[in-house]
Simulated scan of single mutants.
Amino acid sequence: MRSAAPAVPLDVPPPENVQVTLGDVMLWGVLPYVVIAVLVLGSIWRYRYDQFGWTTRSSQLYEARILRIASPLFHFGILAVIAGHFIGLVIPQSWTRDVGISEGLYHAMALGIGLIAGVGTMVGIVLLIYRRRTTGPVFMATTRNDKLMYVVLVAALFAGLATTLISVFDPGITDYRETVSPWFRSIFIFQPDIAAMTAASLSFKIHTLWGLALFAIWPFTRLVHAFTAPLQYLFRPYIVYRSRGKRGAPGAVPPRRGWAPVGTPDRDRKGVPPQ
């Protein structure tokens, strides 16, 4: 995301005049659909054949002090990051302008909120990695799959923060709402705007490629648990306890000592006095 800055000439030609190469077609026209196919089909395969592995493999039992801080930081931060990406990529520039949000105000808000969310997420993931590396039982439970997931996730987060900071010090950077956003929306109508993405700045392209890599490995890592997060817990009713009923009421079961006989066949034989 970029900060509010005075309009300057773009150092790249407008999207309609960009020369699209075969590499651009493969990266921005073919690769997104390959990633989507891997994400969807991989998730279906994982759910059908690895439901017991569809879990975060919680390690809270081994260490909870750092986890109590790192986990909320990461999860709440990543939710804010996802919300920011949704607003920036899905909502067209004209919509925010129509509701009275100027470009300067939008970018200032995006920069402030984006930096807070990004830094919080990065601090959370760094603490989680530190905990996993320094806590013996947690480290022993770490697989190669987990290590790959952490590398790609940290790289995607770092690329996003770097893009935000670069946009602060480089006011001539291309506006992602005029390049990356139209390309992103065009993917879902099966008319990828390759020229728009080709005109984007290099930092946005790197961040996008790391994001695609993250989604490609998503179904095969512990990140898949995000698809079945127990959101229903937020809306479930309070727990209702049944009353035992009054003693002596019709149909009420009389109280019994915990050590009283339960009426097994050997105790119910004739001639055996009750204890």
Rank of each mutant, 00 (worst) to 15 (best):
S3G: 11
T142F: 01
G160N: 02
W183T: 06
Y49S: 13
P72I: 07
Y47H: 03
T121R: 06
V8W: 04
G258V: 11
L157Q: 14
P192W: 07
V25T: 14
V99R: 04
S201F: 03
V99D: 07
E103C: 00
G29I: 13
V8Y: 02
I173Q: 09
P72S: 07
D268G: 00
V8K: 07
A199G: 12
S102N: 06
P92D: 04
Y106V: 08
Q60I: 15
G172V: 08
L27D: 04
G42M: 02
R177C: 03
T163A: 15
T21H: 02
V8H: 04
A196V: 02
M26S: 00
F139C: 11
S201K: 05
V35R: 04
M149Q: 10
V38M: 11
W183I: 10
L10H: 10
S58A: 13
R222S: 03
P265R: 00
H107W: 07
V262S: 07
P274F: 11
T164W: 02
V34W: 05
G84F: 10
P72F: 12
V119Q: 06
V253M: 12
K270S: 09
I239N: 08
A64W: 09
P237D: 03
P274K: 13
F184I: 15
G112M: 13
Q275R: 12
S201H: 11
L31R: 08
L27V: 11
I187C: 08
A252V: 10
P6K: 12
I113W: 09
F86R: 01
L209Q: 08
A117G: 01
L79C: 10
I36H: 06
R57Y: 12
S58I: 13
R236A: 13
V119S: 09
F220W: 12
P9A: 10
P182F: 08
L165I: 15
A199K: 13
L157G: 14
V12H: 09
P250S: 03
G104N: 01
V152H: 02
F204K: 07
D98M: 14
Y49K: 14
P9H: 01
A5Q: 15
T96D: 08
W259H: 09
L41A: 15
M109Q: 05
G120P: 02
S243D: 14
R177W: 05
P254C: 01
M109E: 03
A196P: 01
M197F: 13
G23E: 08
G160P: 01
Y241V: 15
G136L: 10
P219L: 01
S3D: 06
A117T: 02
V154E: 01
R247L: 15
H225W: 10
I166P: 00
F184Y: 15
G100D: 02
L39D: 03
R222C: 03
A155I: 03
P254H: 00
L223R: 05
V253A: 11
G88D: 07
G112K: 13
F204S: 15
P254I: 00
Y33Q: 06
A200F: 05
D266F: 00
V30Q: 07
